[in-house]
Simulated scan of single mutants.
Amino acid sequence: MKIGNYSCDISLILDEVKKHVYKTVLLQAPEGIKKHVFQVVDEIETKTKAKVMVSSDPCYGACDVPLHAAKTLGVDLVVQLGHLPVPNLKLPLPVLFVNLLADAREEESVKQAIKKLEGTKIGLVTTAQHIHKLSKVKEVLKNNGFTPVVGKGDNRVARSGQVLGCNMSTVQSISDKVDCFLFLGTGRFHPLGVALTTDKPVVSANPFTLEVLKNEIKEEKEKLLKK
């Protein structure tokens, strides 16, 4: 199912609801997805017997599950859209994490970023929404004479190459093995986190806008460190 600029495997939700005969579901989504979320609600309610409620609270990540609301409402299942689970996070009620995969121009954005990369060994990091394109992005780098390096995070990180706003262990695992980091994704929050974790240059490539940032990330890092 298409949800804005992302693809959602709705069958994961339908199968889970049917398997456990859940009657009530609380659906949680990031701010940018909320305006599209009712098509997911309609799909669930049409194809199962469950009643779906939508959380209006902000969602800042996989660890930000609306447990209080779920308990107050007495729902059977929480479905969080847009994130991979935190492997070591123990939750007191059933929670299904359904990642949203970006329909973007990851390979093209990396081609745009190549001229700003330094050295040949490139640490490649991204968020859950672009993780499915890592193998193709690695090929782009290889075809242009670079050696992509993908790190593995600690037990809070679900996939190799993935960074979380609260966890940069993937960066730390390869920082001494690379010349430069390439972040694939949107916004400045995550690439700034990468920059604050390492002394290596950081380049950010936006797969939607094809904007490439380098000096901007460095300048923001320096401003924060001066405070």
Rank of each mutant, 00 (worst) to 15 (best):
L93T: 01
F183Q: 00
E220T: 04
C8H: 00
L164G: 03
P94V: 03
D42F: 09
G119Y: 02
G82R: 06
H36N: 13
I10T: 10
L124S: 02
I174W: 03
M168W: 06
L27F: 05
V149W: 10
L81N: 04
V78H: 01
P94Q: 03
L192S: 11
N215H: 01
V79L: 03
G165L: 07
N99I: 04
H83V: 06
V25I: 15
K226T: 13
K51T: 14
A113I: 00
L14F: 06
D64R: 10
K133N: 15
Q162H: 08
V178N: 01
N143G: 12
G193Y: 04
C63E: 12
V150S: 01
K133H: 15
Q80L: 15
Y6Q: 07
L210N: 09
P148M: 08
T147P: 01
A158G: 00
V78N: 03
T170E: 03
V75P: 02
I217P: 00
L77F: 02
L224I: 15
G4A: 09
L26F: 09
L182Y: 08
E211N: 10
K115L: 05
E118D: 07
H83K: 08
P30K: 09
K34M: 12
I131A: 15
S160P: 02
A69H: 06
G185L: 10
K223M: 11
T24S: 15
K133L: 15
K214P: 03
D179C: 07
P94N: 02
K115D: 08
N215R: 04
G151P: 01
G32N: 10
E216W: 04
F38Y: 12
V125H: 00
E219A: 10
K226D: 12
R188C: 11
A113F: 10
L67W: 11
S56K: 09
P207G: 11
V149P: 06
I44N: 02
V163S: 06
T186Y: 05
V157T: 10
D179L: 04
V171G: 05
H130P: 04
E108R: 11
V178S: 05
K218D: 09
R188L: 14
K152H: 08
